[in-house]
Amino acid sequence: MNVNDDPQWRALAQDWTAPSRADGGADLPSLAEVRRRARLQTAVFVAELAVCAAAAAALAWRAVHGAAWLPTLTGAAFTAFALLAAIWAWRTRDAGSADSVRDALRTSIGQTRTWLRWIAAGYAICAGALIHLAVMVADAAPPAPAIAAAAAAFVLATLVALAIAHRRQRRRLSNLRTLQADLYETGDTDR
């Protein structure tokens, strides 16, 4: 059934596509805004890579200058994980080209599950960071107390942020599944 075959749909379509006074072009973002948003995403990714590179360089310098192997190892593991997370986030930043709404939903659900796994890994990394910090504090040449306290506070703040993100992503997953059920309810013959 095409809209032109049904007078009721045809009448609705005429109202739907009538020029709208509110549709004066003011709401359409400019191409410059679109490009700026794309550049911002790229800048965030590059900044994350730069931070990981700087952390890796600092660890390498410490290793070369005789730092204890355990803190260096845990620091390297933490940096590697952060780098992988940044690369993963960059690769999954846009699902707009999925071939169908069903695929887009599946992609969104998959990304949300990945975020939840990443958050779970984040909890483990925070625990590892606290262990790493404890190891450094117990080391023969511990960091200054203020630095250790700041690092611990940073890890605790990260744990809080992860907990908030965890709640948000669980809610999003629930919504996506509800949408999926709504769009593809049982009884419909879908492809």
Binding site: V34, R35, R37, D94, G96
Partner: peptide, 14 residues
């Protein structure tokens, strides 16, 4: 407006 920006960015890439 945010949604429209999302769509335009996706279209620009796609």
């Amino acid at each position: 407006r945010d949604l429209l920006q999302d769509i335009l960015l996706a279209l620009w890439r796609a």
